[in-house]
Every structure is written in structure tokens, then in C-alpha cells.
Design a protein around this nucleic acid. Structure first.
Lengths: 207, 207
DNA sequence: CCTGCCTTGTTAATAATAACACATAGTTGA
DNA sequence: TCAACTATGTGTTATTATTAACAAGGCAGG
């Protein structure tokens, strides 16, 4: 157990992959698994898996493997905190609404508390999630809220600045633009075009 | 110039970031830029930027810097091929429709050629993009199509298998499930929940 | 309860990535 | 045109990540 040590960035990015795979395995009725089996499933070397897991403690038993449900529990705890993260969506366009309708928020990391938009006709209740005008951000933002999902298509940087001023520490960024944030604020860009670009480039250079 | 050499995976993932930033700079009227300036903009070390660029040739001039528009052109060429990639969307739910409405496909990597869905009421023309029943995949898939965007929520693995059988080499995966593909097929998972999990984990462990 | 097998967790070795440092070539100003 | 700068591109070093190897410890069968 080396849980006090710093978790490498590369490991961090694999945790969600493991969690997803373990959920599927659990649904299939698998109760225990060895690193070698899991390896074939997620296409990551067994030794990498074991090292990744070791950062969270001694989760397995020697000569036996890992309990799938125990792993899920641990990953949930580590990754999702107490499942009570209050998340906001900024931008209630097509994409924002699709995300509000996302049926997997509950009991995974937390919930979408509310959404904001500049356009008056998009405001009101949508899929049971209230949509407020962006001017009310400070007022309506749930206490302790740190994570925002950004799906606006105009005034992007201004909106980012507003979010940061109001204490947002992490942004899932669906915009098409390059945004700048101060140190201490994390941005996870989600850009379908970029993804496709990477795929095209990789498949091109692979043959 | 070392363009014959293998481009590191890590570098590949930064190319879209550069491209995005350069587009913004160009819009702001910036015509030339030095690696040190660009560094502050994208928060990547100048030396890393220069090496990343060097894989595509000697793009800059010593004592001068880089021409922004030339860089954009080169990145477009490298990342987007000839902008004629035919992409398909599989799953015409909320998210799939939002992506069809995405206004940035033209002249970036290519275009959404068509979409597929199992549900009859989702078929037909939507945002000017034809939506076909999934049974017609083989028949309606544009020739040379390699990239699929997957937004289905049921029968995920079955759908993936179908896509791979029909020659898809890259999948942008918006599903919530763990999917398996044979060697040679690339998957880029896009999972908002995972993103939020990573953000929560990082912001938790950063203090 | 003991013995042998099996898989973990971790140390050590290798590979990949990032940063340093500087020679080189192009620019700018006179 | 020439000299003084300046920022690139790259050989080298440092850091980070992955893989290999194995000691230590638990399980299963007798």
C-alpha cells in the first residue's frame, strides 16, 4: 500500500476505464477477477493494472485476485467522492439539453443541480432541471459547487471568467474555442472534431 | 526536419490544442508567433511546442518565429487530411441530433454523411442529414467511411461489432458502457461522467 | 494443519516523454 | 551590406511511465 504517494496523471486517466469495465463485469455476474483476465478485457497490461490499483491500497488477495464489487465500491468512493457533487450546466442548447437528459448522473458522481443560459426562451424547467438566466449565476449556484459543464457557443471566454470568479474549479469544456483559465482551475476539453482529427491522423499514420 | 520519424502519442494529442489556439490567434489578427508566446497561451512548455512542431517539418524561421496561418494550414492538412472524411453517426437520440446540428464540421475534417438509428420514428431527414434504419448500414454507408460517432444507449457491443465488420477503423464513443474492439480499431471514449470523475478526483487530491 | 500452487504488490529495468542547452541560421536595424 | 540579436531545431539530460521479474502471502486440496 502506497496510498499516501502521489497518483500519476496517466493512472488517473485509467481509473474511469477500470470502473466502466468492472461495472460491466459485475452485470455479467462476475464476482472475482484476476489482473490477467481484466487485462484482456480493457487492453491494459496486468502489471500496469496492479500498479494502478496499488495506489488505492492493497485491494486484492494473493493467489486469488480481486473482488469485483469491492473494487467498484473503492473506485466509486475515490472517483465520485460521496456522490453528492453538485454540477451545473452552462448553455442550454441542443447539447446542454442532451446532457440534462443524461440518465446516468444519479449515484455516480452527483447530480446536475441546475443550468444557465443567456437566451430567455431556453429558460424554465427542462427535464426536471431548472434553467436560469446567466445573470443569476451567483445567486442560483448551489453551495460548494465546483464543477461546470460548458456548452455555450458565444462569449465563451467571458463565461469562463464568470465561472472562475464564482469559484468553479473544474470545467468540462464542450466549446469549439480555446479557453484560458488561471492556475488551480482544471479544464477537460471535449471536442468531437478534435477526436475525429486524432482518429484520422492515427489511422493515416498507421499505414 | 524529422517528419519520417514516428510521432509520439503524447504529441498527437496536443495537435488539436495547438490548432484550436492558432485559430483563435488568427481571428485576433495575430500573424506571427514565437514558441514562448504560444506557450503562455496554451500552457505547454516552449520546448515541447517546438519539438511537437518539428515532427511536421521545419515550420518556423530562426530568429523570427512561426507564421500563424502557415501553421494552421499545415495542421489542417495533417489532421484533417483533405477535409473529405465521411463520418457517420450511429444513434439519433438527443445527443446524436445535437452532434448533427454541430456547426463546425464543414471544412475542418470532413462532414457527417448520414446517421443510423434503430427507432423508426427517429429516421428520416434531420437537420439536412439523412437518418437510416440500422439494418441499411452496409448499404448506405458512404464508400471509404472509416470514422463513426457512437451515441446509442442499447445493444452497444452488438452495434460496435456491426460497425467493425463494415470497415470502421475509428470510433468516437459516447456510450456509457465498456466496449471491446479488435486490434487495429481505435476508440476514443467521450464520457462526461468520467470527465467529471477525473475532475473531482484531481481537485480532491490537489488539497 | 500442512504443502504446493497461484496471484498479488513492489523493486528493479526499460521505454517514452519532457525539459535543458546551445549551435545555427535567419532577421532587423543601421 | 554587415553585425548584433534572436528564436528555432535538435543532441543530451532528466523525469515520468510501462514492463519485467520475483519475493511474500493467501487459498485449496488432502
Amino acid at each position: 500500500m502506497k496510498s499516501n504517494k502521489h497518483v500519476p496523471k496517466a493512472t488517473l486517466q485509467r481509473y474511469p476505464v477500470y470502473l466502466k469495465a468492472l461495472r460491466k463485469l459485475s452485470n455479467l455476474g462476475v464476482q472475482r477477477i484476476m489482473s490477467r483476465e481484466l487485462s484482456e478485457f480493457v487492453d491494459i497490461e496486468p502489471t500496469t493494472i496492479r500498479r494502478d490499483f496499488s495506489f488505492l491500497g492493497s485491494l486484492g488477495k494473493q493467489g486469488y485476485g480481486y473482488e469485483v464489487n469491492k473494487l467498484i465500491e473503492i473506485f466509486n468512493g475515490e472517483l465520485g467522492g460521496n456522490f453528492d457533487e453538485k454540477i451545473i450546466i452552462v448553455g442550454a442548447g441542443n447539447l446542454g439539453r442532451a446532457l440534462m437528459n443524461y440518465n446516468r448522473w444519479n449515484h455516480v458522481v452527483g447530480e446536475i443541480a441546475c443550468a444557465f443560459d443567456v437566451m430567455p426562451h431556453k429558460q424554465g424547467n427542462m427535464y426536471e432541471i431548472p434553467v436560469y438566466p446567466i445573470e443569476l449565476l451567483k445567486e442560483k449556484m448551489p453551495p460548494g459547487c465546483r464543477i461546470a459543464i460548458l456548452t455555450v457557443s458565444k462569449d465563451v471566454q467571458e463565461t469562463v471568467n464568470l465561472l472562475v470568479e464564482n469559484g468553479i474549479k473544474g470545467i468540462v469544456d464542450f466549446t469549439h474555442e480555446h479557453i484560458q483559465v488561471p492556475k488551480g482551475v482544471r479544464v477537460k476539453p471535449v471536442d468531437v472534431v478534435s477526436m475525429v482529427q486524432e482518429l484520422v491522423f492515427e489511422t493515416n499514420s498507421l499505414k
